[in-house]
Amino acid sequence: MSEIKAPAFKDTAEQSAKLQEVIAKYKGTDGALIPVLHEAQEIYGYIPYEVQQKISDGLGVPMAEIYGVVTFYTQFSIYPKGEYKFAVCLGTACYVKGAGDIIEKIKDRLGIDVGQCTDDGKFSLDATRCIGACGLAPVLTVNDDVYGRLTVDDIDGILDKYMN
């Protein structure tokens, strides 16, 4: 995997307190680790080493196991994501309808590869599993906005919207 430049981890008192709350809520329940990781990612946007360490201390689960779980599931990221998270669905329906070309076009424009984030922290690009909006294939999501029935020509307009 190529080295990804990541900005230093920042933690606010509020985030830290929230995480401790989450840990306290789940501590002692069976299979607590994954729900805690979900909520930790919700709080910080990603799960860097420092956050894993806090969870390890809080739940009493070894770091090795936490790192193993975090890197196993694609939903969890140890790198920060961009302010605008571009995600192109690569489910079969979207693929058959040309999602591959859409992703190439975005890679071209942003100058990053799938899984990476631009240097200014504004844009990141992911290829996602089927999001189930197959009726709208091919589909791109940017944070919570959904763009469907896309053609390659639509991409410039969409990117321009977020660049300004």
């Binding site: 994954i34 196993f72 599931y73 694609t74 939903q75 969890f76 599993r129």
Partner: peptide
């Protein structure tokens, strides 16, 4: 409920 985390 338990949430999956993106592993087929």
């Amino acid at each position: 409920i338990r949430l999956g985390a993106g592993a087929f």
